[in-house]
């Protein structure tokens, strides 16, 4: 991208982001402000997409809770994200795991990739 644009956003880019990709199970710790109190909220799920570049990079995490599928899109460099914890590397053959939306239960499992 443009050098000037890079310079503008440079200061806001995080440098301590762990390596993860589609298929990985992550725990995202989110800063939530309620009134003037701040607390952390965890969102655990499978990364089904990473897209964008630079400061506009986002990733989508999918989880199924109480039988209801739920997806959240996080800006990777958002200051609201306290920490990203990679819990498990998954073995998948594509970068966009939209097929998981059609699956449930045992079929929606992803094999662990122990070599990463």
């Amino acid at each position: 991208m443009n050098q000037i644009i890079d310079k503008v956003t440079e200061g806001q880019l995080k440098k301590d982001i762990p390596q993860f990709s589609s298929g990985d199970t992550v725990k995202v710790q989110l800063k939530i402000t309620e009134g003037n109190k701040e607390r952390l909220q965890d969102f655990v799920g499978i990364v089904i997409r990473r897209r964008g570049s630079g400061i506009q990079k986002t990733f989508t995490v999918r989880r199924v809770s109480f039988g209801v599928g739920m997806e959240k899109v996080f800006p990777l460099h958002s200051p609201s994200i306290e920490k990203i914890d990679v819990q498990r590397h998954g073995k998948v053959r594509r970068s966009r795991l939209y097929y998981l939306r059609q699956l449930s239960g045992k079929a929606a499992r992803i094999k662990e990739d122990r070599h990463r």
Binding site: M1, I4, I5, T9, G54, I55, Q56, H77, S78, P79
Partner: peptide, 14 residues
């Protein structure tokens, strides 16, 4: 005009 991008503000909004 150089182009568009996004930044995060003090309230952490895009």
């Amino acid at each position: 005009k150089i182009g568009m991008t996004q930044i995060f503000d003090a309230e952490r909004r895009v």
